[in-house]
Design a binder for these strands. Sequence first.
DNA 1: CTGGGTGTTCAATGGGTATCGAACACTTTG
DNA 2: CAAAGTGTTCGATACCCATTGAACACCCAG
Lengths: 103, 103
Amino acid sequence: MGHRAEPEHTHPDDVPVQAVFAALADPVRLGIVRELAGSPEWTRACGSFDVPVGKAALSHHFAVLRSAGLIEQRDDGAKRVNRLRCAEFEARFPGLLDLVVRG
Amino acid sequence: MGHRAEPEHTHPDDVPVQAVFAALADPVRLGIVRELAGSPEWTRACGSFDVPVGKAALSHHFAVLRSAGLIEQRDDGAKRVNRLRCAEFEARFPGLLDLVVRG
DNA sequence: CTGGGTGTTCAATGGGTATCGAACACTTTG
DNA sequence: CAAAGTGTTCGATACCCATTGAACACCCAG
């Protein structure tokens, strides 16, 4: 009954703008964020996204999104589910998330 | 009285968000935009910015900012002066420029 | 016309990072 | 327990891009 190492989260307040730009400059990550924005919180597991990369790269992208303060992750059984940090992110970077979604 | 090749401009409306993020993900370009935001239009020549790179790299960065729809350039004698496309950019990406300046 | 200043282009180099395959850890189901 | 599913980590590879120095073009002041 061992625990799995919980992912390290970074609050949007502790993230420089440049890091956010770098995180969103990648097409795969941008797609993930958009897909996540259209789903209810905690409903999307990491493997449920329509991305053209393998699991290894995917895991890397989620780590980047986490350290950019864009997403939060929680373990739910064997899966790791995600949510977009809409409120916190909007408070720190007003309007940014809207721009991402609208394209 | 030959003309010098005028720089190719791209209107913000024709720029995908991802390209803007990529442009602003670089520290040198971010610095240029910020410095430009604090100066009156058409007052700053390319060489007048406080950046830790040579002229060649600098010229490259300006080309990127141009093709991202962030700046406009005009030849003024031997110099090439710049302006931030505040209005057009704000219309296309509301709030983004503010985020850049505020850090 | 000559010289100094400004900016662009080119070829070459280096560094960062996106990607993959394989191995591993954990969970749930059979 | 065995097997299948989910996600992470590691080592290796490849590619993109920021940077440089040198050569060039243009403008202006002597």
